[in-house]
């Protein structure tokens, strides 16, 4: 009975998503939405992918990574090389971007995921910076002055990637493997004692997160005309981290909502250059002071419509220290 209900819910969501994207497609081609809004939507979509992919690493598996911009960079450069240097089609570039980032995730994850808490954070921060410096020194991709990329990201590709990311990560979270990851977040030693291969799951979650960040990188590179190492510094990693924490650690819908809200706020504020970052930082500080557990805590937005039930994605106590 319950299973039928779930299946129905799943397919309803998918249908809604398709209807929504088709309507948007008509609005875009019909010119009702001007380019600026379209671009903001693209930006939101990319940020959603980044937020959900980091959510898997930090929110679900509890591995404190602050080098996510490094994977974004790997994906962006790998895909740009595919289309600009090798002349391959865009879908191949997206896939290669994701795979390259996943490989980078494995290379980085295997040695560093032995570390815990702040030490892991520092190590990932370091790796993010190393990735940036490596690209800075490779003349093949333009070094410090960057690489120009054609505009190939289109609305259908974007929607497809966003839906794919959200579906895969949501399903992963609710699978056996996802539960294993959650158990690592809650207590790694206990999880180990229960026979869960913690290293395997940590690295897997890390690689999946990196894969989707790489896809976001491919979309990013082909949407903004140029990529440059300075676009992928640690401040970019912080931006992504902020989406996840502000939305509520362990809540995917929270991360998505935070990504949407913050992108809109940031875009809106760009017309007020003098006070833009001052307001942005104040929003950040106030939000954290008054709601340190994030917008949704560890709950999902759907749990608000179902009284009496709590989401499975996280613990039930908002104030419990679960991460780092």
């Amino acid at each position: 009975m319950n299973i039928l209900k779930q299946a129905k819910f799943f397919w309803t969501s998918i249908v809604l998503a398709i209807v929504f994207s088709v309507i948007m497609q008509f609005l875009i081609t019909g010119g009702t939405l001007n380019q600026f809004y379209v671009n903001t939507l693209f930006f939101i979509g990319i940020n959603i992918i980044l937020a959900t992919s980091l959510h898997l690493i930090i929110g679900i598996t509890g591995q404190f990574s602050i080098g996510h911009a490094g994977f974004l960079a790997v994906g962006a450069y790998a895909s740009a090389i595919m289309t600009m240097k090798l002349g391959l089609p865009f879908p191949v570039a997206i896939l290669v971007g994701g795979l390259a980032a996943a490989v980078a995730g494995l290379i980085i994850g295997i040695p560093t995921l032995r570390l815990k808490g702040d030490y892991l954070a520092i190590a990932t921060l370091g790796f993010g910076e190393i990735v940036r410096i490596v690209f800075l020194n490779i003349d093949y991709v333009g070094g410090a002055s960057g690489m120009t990329v054609s505009h190939l990201t289109t609305w259908p590709w974007l929607v497809a990637c966003v839906v794919l990311t959200v579906v895969v990560i949501a399903n992963f979270t609710n699978s056996t493997h996802g539960r294993a990851c959650i158990s690592i977040r809650e207590n790694e030693i206990a999880a180990d004692a229960m026979g869960i291969n913690t290293t395997f799951y940590k690295v897997t979650a890390f690689a999946i997160g990196a894969f989707f960040a790489g896809i976001a990188g491919a979309l990013y590179a082909h949407n903004f005309y140029i990529i440059q190492p300075t676009n992928f510094g640690f401040l970019k990693s912080f931006d992504i981290l902020i989406f996840v924490v502000l939305g509520g650690l362990g809540s995917m819908s929270g991360a998505v909502i935070a990504a949407i809200l913050l992108t809109i706020i940031s875009t809106y504020l760009s017309s007020y250059p003098e006070v833009r970052m001052v307001i942005y930082s104040l929003v950040l500080i106030t939000m954290m002071l008054f709601r340190p557990q994030g917008l949704l805590g560890t709950r999902e937005i759907t749990s608000f419509f179902k009284a009496g039930k709590t989401a499975k994605g996280g613990v039930q106590h908002d104030d419990k220290k679960t991460v780092a």
């Binding site: 799943f10 939405l33 809004y37 949501a170 937005i301 179902k306 989401a311 499975k312």
Partner: peptide
């Protein structure tokens, strides 16, 4: 209970679209 996150995600997407569409005028 499974897949319930999806609804949330797309709902928020819609909300965002609504906000943007509202600005359009």
């Amino acid at each position: 209970m499974r897949k319930k996150k999806l609804a949330g995600v797309f709902m928020s997407f819609m909300v965002a679209a609504g906000v943007l569409a509202g600005c359009n005028s």
